[in-house]
Write a protein that binds this DNA or RNA. Structure first.
Length: 418
RNA sequence: GUGGAUAUAGCUCAAUUGGUUAGAGCGCCAGAUUGUGGUUCUGGAAGUUGCGGGUUCAAGUCCCGUUAUCCACCCCA
């Protein structure tokens, strides 16, 4: 395996038959999203670096060490590491009457320069939605219901919704200060990572897998204890609507969302059969200032590689894949038949029949090619057929043969193979 | 960015304490009395053992470096 024919580290080709699963995912999700009034928005993969640094946060790992940044024409550009910021960049260029109540979804590749592992690629794909309606627990609940509806459309019902709140911008400082106050006396007992987190991102300490840290964290006050009543009421509103809709969820005060723009409702969806990276989606309410406009919305992003992995691990991938149409394989005996088959093949395609041919070779090798490709029919023509104006049609599964006239050939091949 | 494991034919894997020309299964290609695929039989092609150095009479095997893959950490979908 030389590097000449290998993709870049952490990026991969998606080939048949798996690519048909990807097509099925898009189809099923698109149908669900349309019922919620979402339109697709396709934004560029390349954006100005500032689009992300300003919204995701200068100090986040995504910005500091994971973005593919480059300079072109004196401008700092980058490959998008996530979808929300680009959509908000688009929205910032519109007037309020165009963004108010806007509902967009996107699907496409994102790029983060991390070390690949199970469920983590440098180029990965997300399906996300952004909803710019006026902030309300009702909208948050609806978007959560939508997300689970998308998963249901994919046949994924064994997912766990973990829900929490980040509070308002003002709350965040209170939470961080409150948790630091509790954790600081235990500084020496925390793991090395957590000693660093204590200064940089206290919430992450709550999420640590280390045994000793977990014990300390177990006695810690909940982040919500440091939030304003208003923020707690907002979360209570979301859960009330979720209860009403019969949407199951788990409140998880230790849930951490890494990007700066989140406020209030945040969530994560955990899948199964996935290894260490078991979150298949994340979302929340956010507030982003770009181009002089402040935009508030709620949305989520689904990691499609992880969804694909889960579908494949649980054997539910086949249900989403549409079978390719029955294939007719044109087989020629002799140059004259070969030449006429090319024209016949185009006529059959125009009539809606999927077909291919082998550009030469013995009858046996052409038949072998037909079999290898999984063709439903072999359409054989030699001097006899040309003279009689017919084609010999062999059903590859049953071995049965018939000889329809050429004007009835397309009809014969459109019928389901026996 | 850090750590562990791995790297031999298209694929999955062998190859004794370092010892002839690196093998097998599957797959691929061709043939088995003139125009028929799959099963069977016969034959064939296919490898700079990831790459580069080193040790040795001798390296797929030992040592160093490097690249990639897988897994985990940090972080995140």
């Amino acid at each position: 395996m030389s590097s000449a024919h290998r993709p870049v580290q952490g990026m991969s080709d998606i080939t048949a038959p798996e690519v048909r699963l990807w097509q099925g995912l898009e189809r099923a999700a698109g149908a669900t999203l349309l019922r919620y009034g979402f339109e697709e928005l396709r934004t560029p993969v390349v954006e100005f670096e500032a689009v992300f640094t300003r919204s995701i946060g200068e100090t986040t790992d995504v910005v500091q060490k994971e973005m593919y940044v480059f300079e072109k024409g004196g401008r700092r550009l980058c490959l998008r590491p996530e979808g929300t910021a680009g959509v908000m960049r688009h929205a910032a260029g519109l007037g309020p009457q165009e963004t108010d109540g806007a509902r967009w979804y996107y699907i496409g590749p994102m790029f983060r320069s991390e070390r690949p592992q199970a469920g983590r690629r440098r180029q990965f794909h997300q399906l996300g939605v952004e909803c710019l309606e006026a902030p309300s627990p009702l909208v948050d609940a609806e978007i959560l219901a939508l997300q689970l509806d998308v998963f249901r459309a994919w046949g994924l019902t064994d997912c766990t919704l973990k829900l929490s709140t980040r509070g308002s911008g003002a709350d965040r400082a209170q939470v961080a200060a409150g948790l630091r106050e509790y954790l600081s006396p235990h500084h020496g007992d925390l793991c090395g990572d957590c000693q660093r987190r204590l200064a940089e991102n206290v919430l992450r300490v709550m999420d640590c897998k280390n045994e000793g840290c977990r014990k300390i964290v177990a006695g810690a006050p909940a982040p919500t204890d440091f939030m304003a009543q208003e923020s707690r009421d907002y979360l209570a509103g979301v859960t009330r609507y979720l209860d009403d809709l019969g949407v199951p969820y788990e409140l998880d005060a230790r849930l951490v969302r890494g990007l700066d723009y989140y406020e209030h409702t945040v969530w994560e969806i955990e899948g199964s059969h996935l290894g260490a990276q078991n979150a298949i989606a994340g979302g929340g309410r956010y507030r982003i200032s770009l181009g002089g406009r402040e935009l508030a919305g709620v949305g989520f992003a689904i990691g499609l590689e992880r969804v694909v992995a889960m579908l494949e691990a649980t054997g539910r991938d086949a249900a989403l894949m549409s079978d390719p149409p029955p294939l007719a394989w044109l087989v020629a005996l002799g140059d004259e038949a070969q030449q006429q088959n090319l024209r016949l093949m185009q006529e059959l395609r125009a009539a809606g029949v999927a077909c291919r041919m082998t550009p030469g070779g013995s009858l046996k090798s052409q038949m072998r090619a037909a079999n290898k490709a999984g063709a439903a029919w072999a359409v054989i023509r030699g001097d006899d057929e040309l003279a009689q104006g017919v084609a010999t049609v062999k059903n590859m599964a049953s071995g049965e043969q018939q000889q329809p006239a050429l004007d009835r050939l397309a009809a014969a091949l459109s019928a389901a193979p026996g």
